[in-house]
Structure formats: structure tokens, C-alpha cells
Design a protein around this nucleic acid. Sequence first.
DNA 1: GATGAATGAGTATTCATTCAT
DNA 2: TATGAATGAATACTCATTCAT
Lengths: 210, 210, 210, 210
Amino acid sequence: MDTKETILAAADQVFGEVGYDAATTREIAESCGVNKALIHYHFKNKEGLLAAVLDRYYDRLGAEVAGALGGAATLRDKLVRLVDAYADFLGQNLRFCRIVQREASGGMHADKIRDRMVPIFELGRAALVAEYPASATGDLAAEHLLISVYGLIVTWFTYGDVIAPLLGSAPAAKRQLTARKRHVRRIVTLLLDALERPAAPTRSAGEIGG
Amino acid sequence: MDTKETILAAADQVFGEVGYDAATTREIAESCGVNKALIHYHFKNKEGLLAAVLDRYYDRLGAEVAGALGGAATLRDKLVRLVDAYADFLGQNLRFCRIVQREASGGMHADKIRDRMVPIFELGRAALVAEYPASATGDLAAEHLLISVYGLIVTWFTYGDVIAPLLGSAPAAKRQLTARKRHVRRIVTLLLDALERPAAPTRSAGEIGG
Amino acid sequence: MDTKETILAAADQVFGEVGYDAATTREIAESCGVNKALIHYHFKNKEGLLAAVLDRYYDRLGAEVAGALGGAATLRDKLVRLVDAYADFLGQNLRFCRIVQREASGGMHADKIRDRMVPIFELGRAALVAEYPASATGDLAAEHLLISVYGLIVTWFTYGDVIAPLLGSAPAAKRQLTARKRHVRRIVTLLLDALERPAAPTRSAGEIGG
Amino acid sequence: MDTKETILAAADQVFGEVGYDAATTREIAESCGVNKALIHYHFKNKEGLLAAVLDRYYDRLGAEVAGALGGAATLRDKLVRLVDAYADFLGQNLRFCRIVQREASGGMHADKIRDRMVPIFELGRAALVAEYPASATGDLAAEHLLISVYGLIVTWFTYGDVIAPLLGSAPAAKRQLTARKRHVRRIVTLLLDALERPAAPTRSAGEIGG
DNA sequence: GATGAATGAGTATTCATTCAT
DNA sequence: TATGAATGAATACTCATTCAT
């Protein structure tokens, strides 16, 4: 019925499974019983199709994040809620995870991803710095914290195939996901605690490399 | 004579820049002035070429990790040293980072990557659990800790293009890399501190989401 | 209302610029803001569209030729007038020139062009032979004369891009066009003079080639 | 055996028959039993293939022209010989005629054609002006004369399909070709005679249009 | 080891045309 | 008349791989 949505769903599936480069318009079209030329009619390009797929995800993710940061709770509670929301979103949208993972780094679609992620990061940074002045700079600077929390969550899913043998079950399984969320929440707690304490000096001796 | 090495270097370059799927044997061959057919003579396959590139990296990475964990220091010191070594290795081998990032998740080369990464993780887990019994299970279970540390480091590089606008300079720049290492070291310290304390209870009430 | 005319004008433009084969119905439709399907509604075919474009031109050209040959002047004067009229018409309708140039030779539209040009040529031949019996046959036979005059004019325009560097300005520029008309008129004069003289013998000895 | 030549011959055939745009690499490859990809291997492009076809023709044509203008005869004799040589060449290479006819005007290959034709024209102009000072400017300026002679010959072939009904046989048939050469030679003779006479004034009154 | 030629399957994309509304 | 969606065939071009030399 809604051809455009049909194509989007199929593209999401195929892009998520084999990646943008290995995906073919033929496979996408056939997998949803739509004429190949319609992809170009509706999305102009294979690239336009990817952009549409990503936009759909980021619209939902943006709403999720805004929802978690909104409301009347303390920032600490909001952040904890955000971690959960983020983890749930990625756990429920593993294909999105995979697409971003593949295309974020150095590809020709990095721009698209950056344009959607940066505002989300900015939002988080503003909130953090406002509440925790210590995060304005130093070891626990907001930009590092945010990347860290993001990495803690996303790595769980994108290295799923790699770590599965260490866990005994898939990382996105409900049991594993719950455990992971508790782990990340714990780290976030430790970090916020640290931010609230007077600055703990880093051991500056014995630094290696770099 | 060094044709094989020449090809490997070129493949590393091209795979790292555009990814395995988008890379072509022609580009690899031309970029190092070698006949295209020689790639198949020496490596059988495009896939064999990727495997060779990855093996070279993992051999070096394995040595790096073994070196950091060896010796007579305390485990805490070893782990801190490991974080630095890992970060330095990835910072100096961004193309390796990108390749793994792209291929680890869901692709047809995930096996290869898993086979090389799992032993490294196992090594870390054994060391951790031996010294910190609290890491055998619970919020700070070894497998979560290891993935976390790995994610804290790797995300910095693989989302480099994305977060660059938030930093003002490239994440692999010496200054940024040093800051990142200090950040991760700080988190590791917090985590080990927590492992040494009697179990701090997680707020189990009010959990949100999935 | 004038949709049909709008499409015709756009088709004329596009066919003239890139040729029938390279022209696309999409480009024609978009260039005049009309729905692509309307082309088929009004003209049945891409081919029908070309036919309509050509017909419009040939209707005007036929009138032009008839006008030049009509009236009470001597045939010599009429022919001179015809040369001018033809040159002016083509100079003002370069796209027509290009279309005919491309499609007259061997294409699938040659029929259409032949059907419209032959009557015009027949008209000229009848007039010539009636006035100049010497043109019934021989070196200056009417069919050769007519093709020649046609070629003298049309080549100027269709090889415009080629000879432009030899001239310093575009062949259809007023100054160049005036010079060309004077040149062709001069040749026509020489030819009519020759037709009026008692048969000048061609050097039949020493012929070279085919 | 010589695949490159095989492809060139097939491309010549197909380009000549249906034109560059309507020609397909598939048809060219199939018509000479060669793998489609080999066209791109040997010529890089469909466009490169056309360039190679044209180059082959122009190399031969250039030699032909140089041969006709060389030697110890009077310029008048040389020019007459040139007309014959040109006519023979085009008569024997009708496909070349057609290709140039189609692509010379406004297409994207006009450059290629211009680059090869201009030197040939320059050659002729230099010879003309040296011997006939009257052709330096005026009604019978060399550039007009050359275009005219070129047009007189080429039009005969390129409008072959159009004028065939007026002639009863194909323009490239030996009998018709001989007649045409005699006609053009006659015009050339008239023109050279005129160039040798003291300047005949053009009737400047009664000019029409422009 | 090394090379140039060859191959067949496959790619994204485009096109004229049709059709239901 | 007009339109947006749909279609199937076709197009230039690319790719990993093979092979004779």
C-alpha cells in the first residue's frame, strides 16, 4: 500500500544485515516485491535511500533522548533514565546500530550521521555542564563522558557477535541487556559521584606512550 | 620480492579508507603498482587479503597486550598500562580500527575477528577474576568490564569524524589522545576501587525501560 | 490550453540541443513544467513528438520557399532571393538545422525528412529545368545544383562549431551570415552564368580517383 | 585475433548505422563476438571507443589530403585532385560521413571532430591564399571556399537517403559518384577562374534579410 | 613470479511507456 | 486534461576471478 514505507522497511533490513556497500537495490526491491525502478523514483538514489532510513531512526532516537532529559527529575535521575532509554532503543534497533557502526567511520555517509548525532551530544553536554561544573574541563570533561557512555552502550551491541561466546547468549537478549544496563548505570553512578567530589588529582607520574 | 608485503600495505590502506566492500582489487593493485592478478596469486582471494591484513594487525596487538599484562607489577598497574598500550596502538593504527569497526558487526568476516579477539578477552578476564573475585559476577562482572574498557577506547577513534566538531581537533591528535587516555585511566581507577570495596548495592528499584 | 505548444517548444529546444536519441521525455517535460505522461497523451510517442516538431518547421520552410519562388521576377532573381530566404531561415532556426543534420542520415526518421524535403526539391528542379534547359542533364544537372546550393548553406550552420575557430565568431552571427549569403549568391551567379553559356566542355582527360 | 581491431571494426559499423547515442556497447560486442567488458578494457569508455574510431578515419583522411596537396603539380590541379580524393574517401567510408554528420553539430564530441578537421582546413587555406591572393578576403575568401567545397561533397553523401528518390540510384553508386565529382570539379573550376579574374563586384543592391 | 587479456555475473541507474484516478 | 505511481527492459560500466604465456 504505502510503497515508500515498504521500501524503507526492506532497505532497513538489508542495509542492517550486510551493510550499505554490500546491499544491492535489486535485493531490496525483491525482498519487498517492489519494482527496482521505484526505489529511484521515490528516493532518487541508493544513497538517498540510506539517508531516509537513517532519518527515520534518528527522528525516533531524538524523541527518545529529549523525553529522557525532559521532565522534573534531578539530572542524575535523568541521566540514568537516558542510559536506559538509549540502551533499550539500540537493543530494539540492532540494525540501526550496525548501520551507524559501519558508516560512521570514514565513509561517505559520515556527514549525515554527524549532522544528526552532534545536536544530541550538544544537548547532553549542555545539561551536564550546567549541573556539574567539574565536567566543564579535566579528566571527566563532558565530551569525554558522553562519548564514554555512548561507547559503553553501543559497543555492547556492535561487538555482539564477537563477545557472544564469552556470554553464552546474545547480547541483545533480555537477560543480557538488563545486566548491561545495570553495569552501565553503575559506571554512570561512579562518574557522577566523582564529579560531585572535590577534584581528585590524576596520577600524573608514570604516564605511558602517547 | 616484497611484493606480498607491498600488496598488504596497499590493501591495508584501501580497506581502511573505504572499507572492504567498497575496496576493489584494481585500486589496491594500482595504488602499489602491482599486477592485479598477483593479488590472487599471493592471497587467493579478496577475502584472503583481508584476512592477511587483519592477522598482521592482531599479531602485533596480541604482543602488545601480552607485554602490558606481563612483568612483575600489580594488576592495577598492569591494567592501567594496558589501557595506555591499547589506546596507543589504536591511535597509531586508525585503519585497523576502522576495518574492525566495519567488519565486526554482522558481516561475513566477523568470525575472523572474533577468533582473534576472544583469546585476548579471555586473557584479560582470567587476570581480572584472579585478582578481583568481585568481578566474577554482578554489576562489575569481568566480561562487562572488559567490553567497557574496550568500548571506551575504540569509540574514541571510530567516532572520530562524528565528534571532531565537539573537540576542535582530530581525536587521534596527540593532545586529544593524551586527554582521552587520562579519562579512561580515571574510569578504570574508579572501577577497580569499586571492585575492592565491599559490594555496593545497585538501586534495584525504579529501573526504567527494557 | 497551450500545453501542446508548450511541449512542442520544449521538445524543439531539447532535440536541437542534444539530439533525438540523447533527449529524454523527462527532460522535455521538466524543462516546460508539464507532466511527463502528457507527452504521450498529446503526441502518442517520443517519435510522434519529433514528427510534430519537424512538421512545424517544414510548414514554415515550405511557405518560405514558395514565397521566394512566387511572384513576377526573373528566375535568376527568384533563385537569388531563395538562397537568401533559405539562409535566413536556417540561421534563425539553428535547432532545426541540427535536428535534420542528425536525423537525415541513416536514422529511423529519415523517411519523415525525405517526405518533406523531396517536394521542395522537386519544386526547385521543375523551375530550373524550365528556364535553363542545360540543367536537364550534364555537369550542372538540376539535382546536383539543388543539392549543391542546399549544401553550401546548410554546411555553414551545421559545421558551425567546427569552423568557428577559423572565423573568430559564430557562423550564425549577423556579420558572418551576411558574408556567407554573399558568397553563396556569388556561386549561384557563376552557376547560372555557366548554364546560360553554350556548354563548356569538362576536361574529361586526366580524371583522378574513383 | 587482434581483439582491439575487431572491436573497432564493429563499433565503426554500429556507430555508422544508428549513431553514437543509439548504439549500445552490447550490440557492438555481440556483433563481433567479443565480451562486453573487453570494450571497456581496451577503450575505457563508449566515448573512448568513438574517439578511436574517429582517429582511425582521420589518420587516413589526413594522409589522403596531404597526398593530394603534395607533389609538383599546379595548385589548380592539386585542388582538383583533392576534390576527387575527398569524394572518393567519403564515398568509400559512408559510415565515417554519417558519424561526423551526426556528431559535428552541437554534441559532446564536437571537440574531437574540430580538433582533427581544423588542421586540415588550415592546410587548405594556406595553400589557397598563397596562390590566389584574391582568396584572402571578400566574396570568395578561402574559409568560405573550403567550407563550400567540403559541403558540396559531404552533402551528397549525408543526404543520400533524402535525395535518392530524385536520382534513381544510391548517391554512392559508382555512376552517381562519378557524376558528382564532375559537378564539383566544374564548380571548383568556375571558382578558381573567378579568383584569377580581376575582382568582379557583387551586386550590393537588393540584398534580402539577414 | 608476473602479466595482459579475457570473462560472466552483477551494479546502480535510466528510459519510454502505461495506467488508475 | 492532468497526475503520481508503477513497470520491464535496457544501458554503460565494474568486479573478482581465471588463464595462457
